[in-house]
Amino acid sequence: MRHIPEEPEAQGAPPRVPRQRSTGAVPTSADVARRAGVSRATVSYVLNNATAVRISEPTRRRVREAARELGYVPHAAARSLRAGQSRMVLMPAPGAPVGALYHRFFHDLQWALSRLDYTVVQYGSAGLTGDEAALAWAELRPVAVVAPGIHELGPAGVAVLKRSGARAVITVGPCPVEGAHALLTDHGEVGRCAAEHLLARGRRRLGVVMPEQPALAVYARARLAGVRAAAARVGAEVTELPLAYEETAAARLAADWPERGVDGVFAYSDEYAMLLMAALQDRGIRVPADTAVVGVDDLMLGRLLRPRLTTVRMDLPSAQELAELVDRTVRHPGTSPTVRDLLGVTLVARESS
């Protein structure tokens, strides 16, 4: 570990006065160094949380206080140029609501990556998918990409990202992608878990809510397949129920509910389950006496409903684990792609079923 000597004020010398800067000028690390009475190298070590050098805590506090007073923040692009490598991790935005659980998980992941000194950028893909999306992401030269399966990234897209300098490409979805590390999320297991619960309660005419949002189709189709597989084993019926996330759409679906003959519903998510339950109850359809309802995500609001919502809880690993996988892959880019299961499921039975 290198030792950086302290840089105290000369004894008896007048205090250093920061040079006045022009109004509106962007503060630099040189300004921070002058105000803190240290070298620019020390400023860099402190603000980049360098661990290879030893700097006293009083000096660290002085540098951070000077940076705060000046409103200085490190320049991520300049830091990448000096290091010869980007520290940007790109996380494409899903493009549609994917549930509170995923939002919470990816928020935690961003925090964990920032603690490892990565700059996390969430990219709004504006409807881009597959190789087209990969080309847009590559323009930013990220060192790593964590791509939800909703973007349908393929082998060609992975190759484009690696040629642009991405050391780690990690996909999160139902199947692995050649050349990328894969975190598998088996949403068929989510549907199977919900269906087996409804079937165990004696329901034999199952409805499956299919969100009318194209970006959710990859998850909805997998969950539907899981329900069909469970129902086929006992000869139960399965009916698809297309539904937009709107009160009027739920009201229309509930209006002809008796003709559908559905006695159990897997509602894709807790949000859709609550939307449908309210519409059914407005029509005088009793939950669960007439129709049992199961959601996904185990949201707090579902526990506050009456009847309380039965749900499938998805058990995800800690965001810290995934952040460490990103970091290891960036530091050792030649590592062979790995495939691991990301998702576990647990049925949480309550009154709605």
Rank of each mutant, 00 (worst) to 15 (best):
H3G: 11
P5W: 13
P5V: 13
Q11L: 14
P15F: 14
S22G: 11
V26G: 00
A30F: 14
D31I: 09
V32N: 08
S44K: 04
L47A: 01
N48R: 14
T51V: 08
A52E: 13
E69D: 13
P74A: 12
A83W: 09
G84R: 04
S86P: 03
P92L: 07
G95C: 01
G99F: 07
A100V: 07
F105M: 03
W111N: 10
A112L: 09
A112W: 10
L113V: 07
G127Q: 01
L128N: 06
D131C: 01
A136P: 05
E139A: 15
E139T: 09
L140I: 06
R141Q: 13
A144H: 03
V145E: 01
H151M: 03
G154V: 00
A156T: 14
A156K: 10
A159Q: 00
L161I: 00
S164H: 00
A166F: 03
A166H: 01
V172S: 05
G173W: 04
C175S: 13
V177Q: 00
E178V: 02
G179L: 00
D186P: 02
G188R: 13
E189A: 15
G191H: 07
G191P: 04
G191F: 09
R192C: 02
R192W: 03
H197I: 05
H197C: 01
A200E: 13
G202I: 12
L206T: 04
V209R: 07
M210V: 15
M210I: 15
L216D: 00
V218N: 06
R223W: 06
L224D: 02
L224I: 05
A225N: 12
A225M: 07
A225I: 08
R228H: 08
A231N: 05
V234M: 07
G235Y: 07
G235F: 08
E237A: 15
E237N: 09
V238F: 09
V238W: 10
L241P: 03
A244C: 05
E246L: 10
A249V: 03
A251E: 15
A251L: 13
A251I: 09
A255D: 12
A255F: 07
R260F: 05
R260G: 00
V262S: 05
V262I: 15
G264L: 09
F266Y: 11
Y268C: 03
E271Q: 14
L276F: 04
Q281E: 15
R283W: 06
I285E: 00
I285M: 01
T291W: 07
T291I: 15
V294Y: 02
V296G: 12
D298Q: 15
M300W: 14
L301S: 12
R303Q: 14
R303L: 06
P307Q: 11
P307G: 05
R308H: 06
R308S: 15
L309Y: 11
L309I: 06
L316H: 10
L316Y: 14
Q320P: 03
L325F: 09
P337K: 00
P337Y: 02
T338K: 01
V339Q: 08
V339E: 11
L342N: 01
L342T: 01
G344V: 10
V345Q: 06
T346A: 10
T346Y: 04
E351P: 00
E351H: 06
